[in-house]
């Protein structure tokens, strides 16, 4: 949670390898970053306390980035246990709402809350049906929050990343291969440090102020709609 000195004050909520990569990339970009590891809290009150502490260390919050947890292994829906389902689908959305509640008091005009989700939100995914559904639910949350907070100058956004990045290469690559007949235009899924963190920097910059509630797809050029 110890922040690193920089100009843009960024609160990063998450605890997987993607979060770690984004953290490193944001530091490279000169952000001051405090991280709240989601595994460190077991209830919304603990999350709120952790966020409050992190924001106190940062001094202010320009950008909040939430990276909801993702399952690692694909499981067909009919083979899932209820606990599989809850962990993949219900828990990430409930966590996203908890992050909203915890962070809302710290968001002021010019700041932004951003979620990082897999692109399977857009098209569904065999073996990850629950996780994909949760990601789409979170995209809707970002839109609703954008509509409510826009008049205060508070923005939201979603960064949609390649399945390989969200779920890991073993599980993600087969998903990516079924998304489109075309090869990824950039021939790589997107490196968290060098490809994805810079987009988060843009989302913290006043230059992106007119963008809110939107999903930026950064998957190496697989999804190209709308």
């Amino acid at each position: 949670m110890e922040p690193t000195v920089g100009e843009v004050r960024t609160l990063l909520v998450g605890d997987d390898s993607l979060t770690e990569g984004l953290h490193e990339g944001l530091i490279v970009r000169g952000h001051m970053v405090a991280t709240v590891a989601t595994r460190s809290f077991g209830n919304p009150e603990a999350l709120t306390a952790a966020v409050d502490t992190a924001v106190a260390l940062l001094g202010r919050t320009d950008l909040v980035v939430h990276v909801p947890r993702q399952p690692i292994d694909p499981v067909p829906l009919v083979d899932q246990t209820t606990s599989n389902w809850v962990a993949a689908c219900e828990a990430p959305m409930t966590e996203a709402l908890a992050v909203v509640r915890a962070c809302r008091p710290h968001l002021v005009g010019g700041s932004r809350l951003t979620w990082v989700v897999p692109t399977v939100a857009l098209g569904g995914a065999a073996g990850f049906a629950g996780a994909a559904a949760a990601a789409e639910g979170i995209r809707s949350l970002a839109k609703g929050a954008a509509r409510q907070w826009g008049s205060e100058g508070i923005g939201t956004a979603v960064l949609a990343v390649a399945p390989e990045v969200a779920f890991g290469p073993d599980a993600g690559a087969p998903l990516a291969a079924t998304t489109t007949l075309a090869d990824p235009a950039l021939a790589r899924p997107g490196n968290p440090i060098y490809d994805l963190a810079p987009i988060l920097s843009f989302l913290a910059d006043p230059a992106s102020a007119a963008l809110t509630g939107a999903t930026l797809v950064a998957d190496g050029g697989v999804w190209m709609s709308p």
């Binding site: 689908c89 399977v120 049906a129 629950g130 559904a133 639910g137 809707s140």
Partner: peptide, 17 residues
């Protein structure tokens, strides 16, 4: 709206599976 959005993508995943 969140749960309704999630339903759409859940349906897509089931359609694929």
């Amino acid at each position: 709206a969140m749960v309704k959005a999630a339903q759409r993508t859940l349906a897509k995943g089931l359609a694929v599976e």
